[in-house]
Design a protein around this nucleic acid. Structure first.
Lengths: 360, 360
DNA sequence: CTGTTAGCGCATTCAC
DNA sequence: GTGAATGCGCTAACAG
């Protein structure tokens, strides 16, 4: 009887390594070579039924599962994908992450997450760090500069963006069609009879804010006046901006996001302003709580898990041999208008307005 | 001039490995041995100032960062921690995760996440899988059986629970003091003058639900009658249970969680039941939106990031050499009552009731 | 079909 | 102080 396999590996002092069972232990137990164990587990080469049974028995007995670090080292790929999010507590990003995770899991990939805490300055470093552990990185709504993004694309083997378009689409991206979404909201409000709209702006640096601006320029016209006030992306921002929104004497307010709308809604309630009686209000994203407030929020539903799933698909494709700088894809996901209780016709306008022909 | 380092490593066919720069490339660039590069980077042994400069220059030039998989293989530790959550879209778990991540990051540990999609059956497998990649796992509100948990504790080198107590506290755990929390709510409602309370039960299998039951038994008495109705843990569950809660003719409803309370609140609004006029309502957890609904929800604030941070601390301690089965810790975090607008004295009771001496 | 050999990238012994 | 050699756990290329 020989010494226990773990003995030879024992280390003294701190950090004493826990002796996990290795492929060699299994091979010894089954009375075969390590290579045979590997073949059974990976299924790369045929193995006789007898040996296969013995190996599987030994694996079950010892509870062996291969060390992915060693596998990765050998294969030069980790079978893991990194995801960078600005804030995990935001259900929007949590859902996107979920979409990536589920899709990746189906392809037997692990997911690593980094939360940058809304700090744009932390994104570049986090992505670089995560890329050491993974085969590539998915960036959610990155706020970094185009320059940093371009540099990152060079340093990270596989890079995909969500809600951000790299210059010259050098980086595969999955985008929400914000322009169509904003246009939908504008049309909805105009059909209700609104003629003066106040927009609560998001962060100026955000790519999605710039997309909204394009849509607003297109939607503004003689029958829809659009005024803008600076705001932000949090509910606290919305709460703060609510008074200014009221001061514009618009009959409808369009918030950058559901969060902003929720914050504004709270302020309106404090002020005794009735929504939608005195003022209609819209959000964007359709986060779960938008259905739980009163009135329920009219918003654009974004299929967030689909964003994640699409990001995974782009990531996955970008690994294919042929795709070397070839098919840099950009995928667009259209949001959908969910008209709920926070929008109605302004005072003095009949509830149902005849649709204008050639409407948007 | 010798051939490029990458040439020798080129693979043909699919999965062609991307040639990341290795320590050997750096060593060659700096004109030193790989060992010297390693010494500079890890700082384990002194290196002459001149060589150190050359190494750092080469590292910067090549953008070299060591491969963690290789490091982990050698050290027998990955410097990564796994976190299993039932549902990432739930801000509660997202916050806990954030707490772990932030604390781990400070110790130079990566975080890997698995979302089990609320499926109790998936937890065990997910934890096992994650433990291959990490030095251990943090389990958030696991629903698995005690038996599975005990088995997991044997299979995973370092295991920590959040909101779950292993049998005989075989597993280090950080817990919310639900009993104190429920007691606080009961006292609050009793002081307001409520004498009949309906509790919307959480999932029967949940450890935290059993803790609440203990507290309810202690709080019930001649001056506080407590009736219970089955409900669940989601806002949809709360919405569904609202009618039954009303039917009990209680003057106050205590929900398992904020989510449940929010769902019930929505239903009450639909029914024209005034909160807190007709019925007081309380939640638990203090998720962000509880401040955004109307009326704002009275609830118990749980410091979720602290839960995560404490979990990390336990995880960290459990790695220390001396702690082998020694200091299995259990940490308790007390929630705090946040009295907001959803609770008031019942109809017919003066708003301010004299405090009963010896109150709870 | 199966076992033996080599090496993925790195840190850590040993020699010098 | 520094460089050469060793091996972490695993699989792909060889030999048998």
């Amino acid at each position: 009887m020989w010494c226990n396999a773990a003995m030879g590996r024992a280390r003294t002092g701190a950090g004493a390594r826990r002796s996990r069972t290795t492929i060699i232990d299994v091979a010894r137990e089954a009375g075969v070579s390590p290579a045979t164990v590997s073949r059974v587990l990976t299924g790369t080469k045929p193995v006789s039924a007898d040996l296969e049974r013995r190996v599987r028995a030994a694996v079950g007995l010892l509870g062996y599962r291969p060390n992915p670090a060693a596998q990765g080292l050998l294969r030069g790929a980790t079978h893991a994908v990194g995801v960078i999010v600005p804030d995990l507590s935001n259900p929007y990003f949590a859902e996107v992450l979920k979409g990536v995770t589920n899709a990746a899991e189906a392809a037997d990939f692990r997911t690593l997450v980094a939360d940058t805490g809304e700090k744009a300055g932390a994104e570049h470093g986090a992505a670089l760090e995560l890329s050491r552990w993974t085969d590539g990185v998915v960036l959610c709504s990155p706020r970094m500069s185009q320059w940093e993004l371009a540099e990152l694309a060079r340093a990270v083997p596989r890079l995909v963006c969500v809600n951000r378009l790299g210059r010259g689409s050098a980086v595969p991206a999955v985008l929400v069609d914000f322009e169509a979404g904003v246009a939908s909201i504008c049309r909805h409000l105009r059909e209700l009879g609104h003629r003066r709209l106040v927009y609560l702006r998001g962060p100026a640096r955000a790519w999605s804010e710039r997309a909204r601006q394009r849509a607003l320029r297109a939607a503004a016209g003689p029958d829809l006046e659009i005024v803008q006030i600076p705001c932000g992306s949090s509910s606290a921002d919305g709460h703060r901006a609510a008074d200014a929104a009221l001061a514009t004497r618009a009959t409808a307010a369009m918030a950058f996001s559901d969060y902003v709308a929720l914050g504004a809604l709270t302020r309106f309630e404090e002020l005794g302003v009735s929504v939608p009686g005195d003022l209609s209000l819209t959000g964007f994203d359709d986060i779960p709580v938008s259905r739980l407030v009163s009135p329920r929020l009219t918003t654009m539903a974004v299929r967030k898990q689909e964003l994640g799933r699409r990001a995974w698909e782009l990531f996955s494709e970008s690994g294919e041999s042929g795709a070397l700088d070839g098919g840099r894809g950009v995928v667009t996901v259209r949001p959908e208008l969910i008209a709920r209780g926070s929008t109605a016709s302004p005072a003095g306008v009949p509830a149902q307005l005849p649709r204008t022909a050639g409407d948007l």
